[in-house]
């Protein structure tokens, strides 16, 4: 379990050849071996959602995943979201309505909803709150995060209609 093995990981479109211990979590490998420190670790037991990344486009807990399981999968982290340097409608809405404070939970929330909004382009507040319930935020009380997601959805619908 502790003897390192060679793996190849595809993260944000780039492939990395790594030697990691099989027991090392994906969160730790992303942060320590690849320097992608935007993935945060808040509990290491699957409750807080701070470590949420996308595995093949679906949100998942990087703290509950071993890196060695990830060969052949496409991984996306927060660093890839504002690709061109321009914030997405969701990121813009989060700053406009103050949907973040310390920012520790924020990457996990952004990744969760970048995907969720694609599947739920016209959400209601209860739906957003339900989807957000997998991410703990200790700072905001959630109100402005919910507001931002709804605002981003409206903005994206306008964009799609235009």
């Amino acid at each position: 379990m502790t003897e390192p093995v060679s793996i190849s990981l595809t993260v944000n479109g780039a492939t990395h050849d790594l030697v990691v211990a099989p027991r090392k979590t994906l969160a730790d490998v992303l942060r320590e071996d690849l320097g992608l420190t935007g993935t945060h670790v808040g509990c290491e037991h699957g409750v807080c959602g701070a470590c949420t990344i996308l595995i093949d486009g679906a949100p998942a807990r990087a703290c509950l995943t071993y890196a060695v399981q990830m060969e052949g999968h496409e991984l996306t982290t927060i660093e890839a979201v504002a690709k061109s340097g321009e914030l997405t409608p969701l990121q813009r809405a989060l700053t406009q309505v103050h949907g973040l404070q310390c920012g520790f939970c924020t990457p996990g929330i952004v990744l969760t909803f970048e995907v969720w909004l694609r599947d739920n382009p016209d959400p209601d507040e209860a739906g957003v709150r339900e989807a957000l319930s997998g991410n703990i935020c200790r700072c905001t009380g959630y109100q402005n995060i919910v507001k931002a997601v709804l605002a981003a959805a409206a903005e994206m619908r306008r964009g799609a209609g235009a």
Binding site: T37, G38, I78, L87, T95, H98, L100, F104
Partner: peptide, 21 residues
């Protein structure tokens, strides 16, 4: 005014304790 911190926090570019090694 929107917060100056937001841009870095929203893009994973915040620098927290465990990010320094």
């Amino acid at each position: 005014l929107p917060r100056k911190e937001d841009a870095r926090f929203l893009t994973g570019a915040g620098r927290y304790l465990d990010d320094i090694a």
